[in-house]
Amino acid sequence: MRARTLLPAALAAALLALTGCGSDDGSASADGTGASTSKASSPAGSHDSGSGSQDAEVPETLHFTATTVDGKPFDAKTLAGKPTVLWFWAPWCPTCKGQAAETAKVAAAYEGRANVVGVAGLDKNSAMRDFVADTGTGSFPHLSDENGEVWKRFEVTQQSHYVILDKNGKTVHEGVLPGGKGLAEKVAAVTG
């Protein structure tokens, strides 16, 4: 009897995850509250995506740590003082794959003025690494969020979702940008 109860719930959860790919409701909120997400505490390592000023005050939004898909520790405090794009994606998501080129283009165009960080979830780290290699998005850091801690922190409930923070860590945009269209304009608005 228990199996009959669990199976429909598991199927519903799987369908919900699949229907989130490419949906454009942008309804999740991001208040930036929550505890640290990992034990790692050192900077982004070789993927320094234009980390913020050492003197910048670190907003609560950026008080979390994680590990990159290539196994390096990542401390979000290094993002303080500059606008930041958090791109939440899943390796099996075709919408996410369609956003990769534009996201990488924006990361390169705003290097040193804004941070771009991928937050991969909903799969295993090996699939995340393959996605980064296949899409050519290795020029900026990608967090391996297999347990969904960063996703929970920003209350993201679907993949292919952007959260854009201003230099003070305040959310200025969140939602889906099909194909990444409009990302450059949104980043331009927060970089001045």
Rank of each mutant, 00 (worst) to 15 (best):
M128K: 03
N147T: 13
A56T: 03
K72G: 00
K39G: 12
A107D: 04
S144F: 03
P94M: 10
N115A: 09
G118I: 01
A114G: 09
S46N: 09
P91R: 04
S53G: 11
S49T: 15
A56G: 01
T33I: 06
W87I: 06
S46K: 09
S49D: 12
L86R: 09
A101P: 09
A35M: 11
W92S: 12
E146A: 09
A107V: 08
D134G: 05
G148Y: 01
W151I: 05
A107L: 01
K39P: 05
T61G: 03
P91E: 09
K39R: 10
D55A: 12
D145P: 06
A66P: 09
D123R: 03
R129Q: 15
A100H: 07
A114Q: 08
L143K: 05
Q54R: 08
S53C: 04
A133S: 13
S46H: 05
V69L: 02
E146D: 12
P83N: 08
A80I: 12
A107P: 10
N125P: 14
E149R: 15
K77M: 05
M128C: 00
G136L: 10
D48N: 11
G45M: 00
D48Q: 02
S41A: 13
P94Y: 03
D75T: 12
W87Y: 12
C93D: 13
Q54H: 08
S51D: 14
A133M: 07
G32K: 02
D123T: 06
N115Q: 13
V85C: 08
L62Y: 07
S36Y: 12
A100W: 04
V117N: 04
V58D: 08
S46T: 11
S51N: 13
L62W: 05
K97P: 01
E149H: 14
G148S: 13
S51K: 07
K97D: 05
A108H: 12
L62D: 10
V106A: 11
V85R: 07
S139K: 12
W92L: 04
G45A: 02
G50W: 00
G50C: 02
D145H: 00
P73V: 06
R113E: 15
